[in-house]
Structure formats: structure tokens, C-alpha cells
Design a protein around this nucleic acid. Structure first.
Lengths: 218, 218
DNA sequence: CGAACCCTTGACTTGAATCAACATAGGTGG
DNA sequence: CCACCTATGTTGATTCAAGTCAAGGGTTCG
């Protein structure tokens, strides 16, 4: 099975047709919040680059326990860190636009441009590095340390904005950090009480980091 | 700094000289149990293949908490999953022999042989896959599930021998699984009491798996 | 032979999970 | 625009899985 056309989560037919042609190497597509972009064990036919929005990738255990491997933000590419078939599920966290490319054409492109798959190798190596750091977090850090690490990571990836607008819910953060959503909420409250951060306005997803250094050295 | 000659953990001068020459592309070296092969943040000058023994790679937090990323067994290569500098420390678990190659020559070799860095890419991708599976374990599995998963993994990698001789201590297993050594010991005792495994003889590192299927479906 | 590990087991503690209640936001349709 | 509903987030009370502390036996190795 190459493509499962009768599900809403696949690129629409028009995009497939375009991608199948010779001229068009990539195509834009939009996903509503909460929709699946690809599933675990599906063929890795396409590679994705986010132009707007945010994506989470996760694995599930049989009884529903979820581990989020990574969050992807605008500019990030994802979907090829895999082998030929996806090893996890990707979902749009919020309304998200992605540029979709055929996997094969990407590999050929990077190969001819750099005289090898080196840039691809670099991307996979970056993913590996992130995974290694995350294993240390999951295996050995306390709840407060995990949440602080998460905030510092997001802050850096968003370019240290004055105000950080997190796209993901407390549950997503929890499943990324190997915690429960209550524990994440409590840790954030603790950090707020220690004046390390501030919630902006009424929605709790807008956070201002007040003392980045102290947060980082947890 | 390319090579820190005055530490015992580096290849001896003879090997360095040989590696520097044109003819010899690789060299054999032996490490006593517990000795460091390379350290975190060192230059990744060499790539290693184990011919006998076992190696662990780990990261440390400032206060000494340790997370073991992976165990390496005979036949395994390690040391280039990194970028140009090592992102963790590698140590011999037991008396270990490794084949040492210059990193550069490996990359060239794989490139010329396969018309690209594809085989290298495959190796890094395998590492990434392992890391992703391990994140699920560390983030979401119970102690018993972690130990069972560990046993099944080792069993498979050792070729499902009738009797499995683990090279690593309970502490190593604990630091790999994000547990304490006591919890690992208790989990093993529980599995023994459930007749899922058996300790062979007096040393507790020889284990016979009695019902692999039931162990695997935890 | 002694010393340093290694492993197991028991008793107790604790950090995070679970269970529960409540507040608020945001989306939908009347 | 409002009323409703669901999803989201916080906080408190309680439980529990794993950690910590402690003791004792066994093995290995210099």
C-alpha cells in the first residue's frame, strides 16, 4: 500500500497528482488542529517541512500510554529521520501548513548538491543528538528539571522571544516529558511562584521567562 | 587538541603512528574492564568496532546521575553516531578488544563503496531508531516492563542463546533503564518467581529465559 | 586472606501518579 | 449575542511505585 486515499489525513488527490508529475517537486498542504499527518508503520513516501503551525510525533503502547518524541516548529523538516517506513505518528497540534516533498526526490537532491547524503546525514544526526539528550532527561531528571529543560529548549527554538506562545497543551508537554499533566501544571506553578516565569494574560500558554540563566542551570 | 597522549585510555603511541601512516587503516586495541575508551566532548577522531567484550556509552549530569545510552557487543560499531566530537563517554564493561579506525577513512570508504554515505546513514538511523524506542521505555514503561524489555533486547542481540551471560552489572542495567539497582534486582527476582527466567549457578549474571513470548508481551 | 564489589532483601520514605473538584477558555449553534 | 458544551488548566487529598537506607551474604581479585 503506497497511499491510503480514502482517509482525510492524506494529501488530497490533486497534490498526489502534482507530486507524481515531473515538474512539481513539492506541494503545500494544510492540516486542521489534531489531525494526523502520517501514522506509525505507514510507508514513508513523503518528507515534510512546516511553513506555519506545529506538529508532534509520538509512539503509543498497546494500552494507550503515549510518548511524544519531538515537537516540530516552522522551518523544521520531519518524516525522513525514519527509514523507509514511519516509526511514529505525526499530528498537527494547531492549524498547520506543510510543504510536502517526495522522499526520493529529496535524497537525490541532497545527494547531487553536496556530493553525498551528507546533509541528510547531518539532519539525522541532529535528531539522534536530541534523542540522546532526551533520554538523559527521561531517565534521570526530576519533574521540575524536566519542565525547566523543556521551557529552555522551546525558548531557544523560538528564538528567545519576549513572550513565548506555546502551541501545545499540558498533556502534550507531559507526554513529551514522561510526566502527567497535573505534574507539569504543578511544576509550572512552582516556577511561577519562584518568579522564574510569568503567565501572560488569561490563557496559560503564553509564558514569559524571567530569569533564563537560573532556569537553565536546573 | 587531536590526541591526548598522556592518558592511559588513548590508543598507545604505536597505534597512533600506525594509523597516521598510509598503509595501515585500522588497528587493534585492548581495554581493561572499567577503562574509558573516549570521553564526552572529546574529538571524534576514531571509530571503533568491538571484536570481543562489551562497551557502555553514557552521559552524566553535574551531580553524578548517569544515563547509559547503549550497550555495544562484539561486532557492533560505535563512536561515529556522533558528529565531529563525542557526545558521551564510552567505557569497557569487561576486558574488551576493539578495532580502531580513523573516522575520516571510514567515511571515505563507505562513500566510495556504496556511492554515497548511505551505509553510514543506515547506521545512524539504526541508532536513532533504538533511541526512539528507548525514549518510550524511559518515559512510559513500568520497572517490570523495562527489565523485561531489556532482557528481550539482550537475548535477541546475543542470538537467543540457551544461556545468556550478561556482561554488565545491576547498576549498569539500572542506569540504562532509568531505575535504581535495587529496583532492577527486585524486578529480576519477580520474573524469576514467575518462572519467566532462571539464574544459572551462583553468579547472577547468567540467565536463562524460560518463556520468551510471555516476557516479550509485557 | 583481606578488601572491594556485587547482589539481594527488608523496612521505610518520598516524588509523582491518581482521584477529585472546580474554574475558565473557546468554539458552536440557536 | 448569549447559552451551552467541551476541552483545558489548576489545585487539593490521597495512593502507590520506585527510591532510599540498611543489613548481610557471596564472589572476585589483587
Amino acid at each position: 500500500m503506497l497511499v491510503n486515499i480514502n482517509t482525510h489525513r492524506r494529501p488530497v488527490d490533486g497534490h498526489l497528482a502534482a507530486l507524481a508529475g515531473e515538474r512539481v517537486l513539492c506541494s503545500e498542504h494544510r492540516y486542521r488542529r489534531g489531525t494526523e499527518i502520517f501514522g506509525e508503520d505507514e510507508d514513508a513516501e513523503y518528507v515534510y517541512q512546516i511553513t506555519a503551525g506545529a506538529v508532534r510525533t509520538h509512539k503509543l503502547l498497546a494500552d494507550g500510554r503515549r510518548q511524544i518524541n519531538a515537537f516540530h516548529l516552522p522551518g523544521d523538516m520531519f518524516g525522513f529521520e525514519n527509514g523507509s517506513s514511519h516509526r511514529f505518528t505525526a499530528e498537527a497540534i494547531i492549524e498547520t501548513s506543510v510543504r510536502i516533498m517526495r522522499r526520493g526526490s529529496i535524497i537525490e537532491a541532497t545527494e547531487s548538491r553536496t556530493g553525498g547524503t551528507r546533509s541528510l546525514l547531518r539532519l539525522v544526526t541532529q535528531n539522534l543528538q536530541h534523542a540522546e539528550d532526551h533520554m538523559l532527561l527521561l531517565g534521570r531528571k526530576t519533574a521540575l528539571e524536566r519542565v525547566a529543560t523543556f521551557l529552555v529548549e522551546m525558548d531557544a527554538r523560538l528564538g528567545q522571544p519576549q513572550l513565548m506562545a506555546l502551541p501545545m497543551s499540558r498533556r502534550d508537554i507531559a507526554d513529551y516529558l514522561g510526566l502527567t499533566l497535573e505534574t507539569v501544571s504543578r511544576a509550572l506553578s512552582t516556577l511561577r511562584d519562584q518568579n522564574l516565569l510569568r503567565f501572560e494574560g488569561t490563557t496559560q500558554r503564553r509564558i514569559e521567562l524571567l530569569r533564563r540563566k537560573e532556569l537553565a542551570q536546573l
